[in-house]
């Protein structure tokens, strides 16, 4: 009985995590500018990875594998905001303007080559 509940739970978690991964990736492809795309990528890093890893942990039971999965989760939760922070900060400081709702700076995305300036 308990095994069945655990199975159903991890099914739900893994499927939910996979769904979040796809949603995040679609968002990454469809969002209009860098900052909103980063926002979509955050879904993959937190909800997608978190749910899938928790689902795998339920499958693993109380073993070393579970500890390793938990470590992966913890480390990604440390590193992913760090790199997103660095990314956003340097994007802002090199002059990529966020798209604003009132269309104040609705210019097209700049092409590659910020180093030309």
């Amino acid at each position: 009985m308990v095994a069945l509940i655990v199975d159903v739970l991890s099914w739900a978690l893994i499927l939910g995590g996979g769904a979040f991964c796809v949603i995040g990736a679609v968002g990454m492809l469809r969002m209009p500018d860098v900052f909103t795309r980063m926002h979509a990528a955050g879904v993959v890093d937190t909800a997608g990875l978190g749910l899938i890893l928790i689902g795998l942990m339920l499958q693993a039971g109380f073993t070393l594998v579970m500890v390793k999965l938990a470590l992966i989760l913890v480390f990604v939760l440390y590193t992913s905001p760090m790199s997103t922070h660095a990314l956003a900060q340097s994007a802002v400081s090199t002059g990529v303007q966020p798209l604003l709702a009132d269309g104040a700076n609705n210019q097209k995305d700049k092409e590659d080559e910020p180093s030309k300036t």
């Binding site: 480390f75 440390y78 590193t79 760090m82 660095a86």
Partner: peptide, 15 residues
């Protein structure tokens, strides 16, 4: 000027 990067790096390097 980057406290976030520095603190996270300090946490992660020993790990």
């Amino acid at each position: 000027p980057h406290p976030i990067l520095r603190v996270t790096a300090k946490l992660l390097i020993p790990a």
